[in-house]
């Protein structure tokens, strides 16, 4: 079994399906045809560009270029985490907490995976590093975003209860403990669910890709398992870091609950 190469004509055939969908949307007044076409065009351009960039990266194996690509991916993931927050931290913290948590979790788990588990030589070989980092970042991003969002929204809603604990002589740590637990749980649920149902409904994307590329299904399953394990470790670590940093930032040095460090809902620039 070998890889069937796709020609531009094959892709054009698939694109006709999207055009048909857009026509149907126009005919039925669904109003999504414009957005659908723009999204399809965007994904075409983005994926072609990534393909080109990766082709260049693979050809050179230059650690600096690979590092740059990794940082770019991290930067975009940071923006995504920020945008998923209903109440974000003001100033550089809003971006910083999410990006830093993803950085320490994804990059450390990635490094361990490449050096200790897969043992590629050199460890930064882009053919392994970039796709693995992408999967790690994508999942850690969801985990950290959900966890941070639960934390900041929860703190906003539970202000009275948190301050009641402070007034009862509790430390900031005790006052936020239950909310911190809830936030972490919320951040971990998606990956736990993904592991629990893996393979039953749909084959995970990476396994699908490997099977299509001609790998024996058992090998693809093993790689997928490996990825799920390291992804859950990365997501867990990233959520813990984000929740810890975020909950610390909610209190100041006198252990006061500082909701003024969060942006008001719906307003872009506070005060």
């Amino acid at each position: 079994m070998s890889l069937v190469l796709l020609t531009p004509f094959d892709l054009a055939l698939a694109a006709v399906l999207v055009l048909l969908l857009a026509a149907m949307s126009w005919y039925l007044h669904l109003g999504v045809e414009r957005r659908l076409l723009i999204a399809a065009a965007r994904s075409t351009v983005q994926l072609m560009l990534v393909g080109l960039v990766l082709k260049a990266l693979f050809a050179q194996t230059n650690p600096w270029l690979i590092g740059l690509m990794a940082l770019f991916m991290l930067a975009v993931a940071g923006i995504e985490v920020l945008q998923r927050q209903k109440r974000r931290f003001r100033g550089p913290w809003g971006y910083g907490i999410g990006a830093f948590s993803m950085f320490i979790s994804s990059f450390s788990v990635l490094f361990l995976t490449l050096t200790l588990i897969i043992r590629v030589e050199p460890w930064y070989q882009p053919q392994y590093l970039i796709p693995l980092l992408g999967m790690l970042l994508g999942n850690t991003m969801s985990g950290a975003a959900i966890a941070l969002d639960t934390l900041t929204r929860g703190a906003w809603d539970a202000r009275g209860r948190i301050e009641a604990r402070l007034l009862a002589g509790g430390t900031w740590d005790q006052a936020i403990a239950s909310l911190r637990r809830d936030s972490l749980r919320a951040g971990l649920i998606p990956i736990v669910n993904a592991m629990a149902t893996a393979g039953l409904v749909s084959l995970p994307g990476m396994m699908t890709g490997q099977i299509l590329a001609g790998s024996p299904p058992m090998e693809a399953a093993k790689y997928q398992l490996l990825m799920m394990f390291v992804i859950s470790a990365g997501t867990g670590l990233g959520s813990v870091a984000a929740v810890w940093l975020g909950s610390r930032r909610l209190f100041d040095e006198r252990e006061r609950l500082r909701l003024d460090r969060l942006r008001d809902q719906g307003r872009d620039r506070g005060q």
Binding site: L166, L167, G170, T171, R254
Partner: peptide, 19 residues
């Protein structure tokens, strides 16, 4: 320590919250 202070100087807020 802030926690110690708040325990020794007790505030009863207008609305009591229960956690």
């Amino acid at each position: 320590a802030p926690a110690r202070w708040r325990q020794r100087v007790g505030l009863l807020p207008a609305e009591a919250f229960w956690w």
